[in-house]
Structure formats: structure tokens, C-alpha cells
């Protein structure tokens, strides 16, 4: 499965990582190498083998439905990033996190 520049751009968009034209070419080379490594898997016949997601065959533990968390908003919002576009203010207002307008 040969990778193309278009694939790189599509994947970069899905991953929300800006990639310039020149970066895309360099990335293509590197990722092609890595995919080459990965391709070794295709030689293995895995018919009927159950996929393994976890190393231990255990089941999910359940938590009691009890409120254990308190309001730490102000503490957490000390880590808010700067708003940007000329403002070094934290990107919060009235307890809300601020982002560029979300359009539905």
C-alpha cells in the first residue's frame, strides 16, 4: 500500500496537524520507511486468531455511583493557554474555556 502526498495531507487533516508542502514531502519519505517495516506483518497468516487488546484476560471493574469529585475549576484553569491573536490573557471567561467561534 504505497503512501502518497495526498494520503499525508488527508491524515494530517484528520489529526489536526498543519503540514506544509515541503514538510509533507519529507514526511512521506519517513512514513513510507516506517510503513515498509510494518508491511512485514502481511506475510503472516492470522486466520482465526483472536485479536489481543489487553495482555491479561480480565473484565472491567465497576465503580460505585458516588460523587467523589469536588469543584477544582479555578485550580484547573490556571493552566489555561493564552488567548492568542494579540492577547496574552488566559483563554477563559466566566468559568468557560474560550475558543474561536464554533459554527454548526
Amino acid at each position: 500500500m504505497a503512501l502518497s502526498i495526498e494520503d499525508i495531507k488527508k491524515v494530517a487533516h484528520l489529526a489536526r496537524i498543519e503540514v506544509s508542502e515541503s514538510d509533507a514531502a519529507a514526511t512521506l519519505t519517513k512514513l513510507t520507511g516506517i510503513l515498509g517495516l510494518i508491511e512485514q506483518m502481511q506475510a503472516v497468516d492470522t486466520t482465526g486468531i483472536e485479536p489481543m487488546s489487553h495482555s491479561q484476560d480480565l473484565s472491567q471493574r465497576l465503580r460505585d455511583d458516588v460523587v467523589t469529585k469536588t469543584n477544582l475549576r479555578d485550580e484547573f484553569q490556571k493552566n489555561a493557554p493564552e488567548l492568542g491573536n494579540g492577547s496574552t490573557e488566559p483563554a477563559v471567561a466566566g468559568g468557560l474555556y474560550l475558543v474561536p467561534k464554533v459554527i454548526e
Binding site: 455511583d65 477544582l72 475549576r73 484547573f76 468559568g95
Partner: peptide, 29 residues
Amino acid sequence: RTNTKIFSGASIKYGAEPNTQACEVSIAL
């Protein structure tokens, strides 16, 4: 109709002040 979130012990009561029921799991620290 639970008291807490599906994956953390934060309350789900309706109408709280913004982000006061957003624990470290809710805000994905």
C-alpha cells in the same frame, strides 16, 4: 439517572455553574 458521570465521580446535576462539575477526568487532563 445516575449521581455521577459514566467514567468519573463528578456530579451530573443539571444547572451547575460552568465547569464546576468538570473534574480532571471530565476535562481530560
